[in-house]
């Protein structure tokens, strides 16, 4: 047996089951190397005992590993032990993706600025964002709505930090390679939106 297994596996196992995504980042580096080395046997272990898939995403420097409980998994993880993301977080996640990777505000790295951008910089989305993220009913938003929206954004980022999508330290954050996982989860819907909408209509 690999000596490293004794040291690494226990904590890594918990991390994986906690939804953590493992990539080449800071302290995760050693876990990453371990998973990379023993990918096949770890995959077999999770498949056999928990009926969940150990998967990899990303390429080269941006590669990452995670346990896939979804979508069709009938894994051996009891329902009461599952914890679901709030739906708001999906929207926050895609907003962050848009801001950083599509609109290329790559230097964005603080929650404060992120909150402000979501609140102010997207005029065309403003109404919808406040309705969904702050549950605001009125066209004119108030300070309370602002605060609620900020709160949702912060909660979402904290949740992303828990699963290793972002590295969050105080106000400062970094998006990690596994943040791209958000896309892969909804990939089918993203690429086939038109078709899917047509199906829904008929």
């Amino acid at each position: 047996m690999d000596d490293e297994a004794e040291l690494a596996f226990g904590r890594l196992d918990f991390a994986f089951k906690n939804g953590i995504h493992v990539q080449r980042w800071g302290e995760q580096e050693s876990w990453y190397r371990f998973v990379d080395k023993h990918f096949e046997s770890l995959k077999a272990y999770y498949q056999r005992f928990f009926s969940v898939q150990l998967r990899e995403g990303g390429e080269s420097i941006n590669r990452y590993f995670y346990l896939d409980f979804w979508p069709e998994s009938r894994g051996n993880i009891p329902l009461e032990n599952r914890h679901f993301f709030a739906n708001e977080f999906v929207i926050v996640g895609f907003m962050v993706y848009k801001i950083v990777y599509i609109d290329q505000y790559i230097e964005l790295d603080t929650l404060t600025v992120l909150k402000r951008m979501i609140r102010q910089d997207y005029e065309d989305l403003k109404l919808g964002l406040f309705r969904t993220l702050a549950k605001a009913k009125n066209v004119n938003t108030t300070e309370m709505d602002d605060e609620k929206l900020d709160e949702t954004v912060e909660k979402a980022m904290k949740e992303f930090a828990k699963i290793g999508w972002v590295d969050l330290e105080g106000d400062h954050f970094d998006l990690l390679p596994s943040f791209q996982r958000l896309n892969t989860i909804y990939q089918d819907y993203i690429t086939g939106l038109d078709q899917w909408l047509k199906q829904e209509a008929s």
Binding site: F14, K17, N18, G19, F69, W70, P71, I77, N81, R82, H83, F84, F85, A86, N87, E88, F89, V90, T132, K135, K162, I163, I185, Y186, Y189, W196, E200
Partner: peptide
Amino acid sequence: KKVLQLPPGIPTSAMLLVKQ
């Protein structure tokens, strides 16, 4: 409680965490 629902047909974000 007010809960946000995604458009019908789009699965709830089952990015689940296992609480141990």
